[in-house]
Simulated scan of single mutants.
Amino acid sequence: MTTVVVPEWTRRRALALIERNFMIYRRSVTPLLNALVEPILYLLSIGIGVGLLVGTVPGVEVPYVVYVAPAILATTAMNTAFNQTSFGVFIRMRVEKTYEAILPTPLSVTDIAVGEVTSAMINALLTSIGFLTLMAVGGLVTSPWVLLALPASALIAYAFAAAGLAVTTYLRDFADFQYIQLVMLPMYLFATTFYPLSVYPEVVQPVIRALPLYHSIELVREPALGRLSWDLLIPVAYLVAFGSVAMYVATRRMTRAMLR
């Protein structure tokens, strides 16, 4: 497993970029509210709407909306983090040329990468807290272990924020964002967000298990349903490895692009 070790001085300098980002974000809560709109619509239309037809989920014996809600929470953390380090960073890198103004300062490319990923993690965690609050208000919380969804959301955000940063280094123009949707949307629909892994043919199940969103959903859904086991260490290890490799790739490619 490739591990990214962040020195203490890098963490301190990255705080300057995090502060810069939140000086911009604090002017409006609109981005955070917008990040909640889509998951709420999915929860209402599919979780509750389809749930009226499905009833309880076989093998889990909980109402369908209770089964779906933790998965939507995981995807909320994923989308919030990924969108910030893909579209947001692309704008700052290619359009606004923000990083060109930052590099003459003591901040390095690594500081920028760490700062952007950390900013995305904070935003994703705030959005996850908002969605978890809505779950509690809506009576969709069945176990106190659902609180583990918050550190799980932070780990999910790290993995997908790093992935978004790595993907952005390969984008040439705005049209390339369409290719991202060709990956993200099918993964969102098929990574057990709305139905159990058992509905797939056995030959397909290993493919689903290989998806990062599948492990993200498992890490949130299992504690939310009150099911804790050592098997949860598998998605933890997967997401740490996935995020670390993505962070390594992103840092190397950003350094090559910005300092050439």
Rank of each mutant, 00 (worst) to 15 (best):
L171P: 00
W230N: 07
P106E: 04
A246H: 04
T118N: 06
V204W: 11
E61P: 06
P212M: 08
F177T: 06
V167H: 01
R172C: 04
A154W: 14
A191Y: 03
N123E: 15
T2M: 12
G164D: 05
S153C: 14
D176R: 08
K97F: 13
V199G: 06
A175W: 09
E8C: 00
S229V: 06
V236L: 09
V109F: 00
E218Y: 03
L134Y: 06
I156A: 00
L32K: 06
L41A: 09
A154P: 09
A257D: 09
V240A: 14
T255R: 06
V29N: 07
V183K: 10
V137T: 07
I129Y: 04
I234V: 15
E8G: 12
L259P: 05
L107P: 11
L125V: 15
L17Y: 05
V60C: 00
R13K: 15
F22M: 10
A191V: 05
D231G: 06
A163V: 10
M23A: 13
N79V: 11
T98D: 04
N83A: 10
E100M: 02
N34E: 13
V62K: 09
S216I: 10
Q181D: 11
E8K: 11
A113Y: 01
L132I: 10
V29D: 11
T30E: 02
V220R: 08
T193S: 04
A14D: 08
L182F: 12
V95L: 09
A152Y: 04
L33R: 07
P223R: 12
G226F: 09
Y64I: 10
R221H: 01
L17G: 04
A16G: 08
F131W: 03
V29C: 14
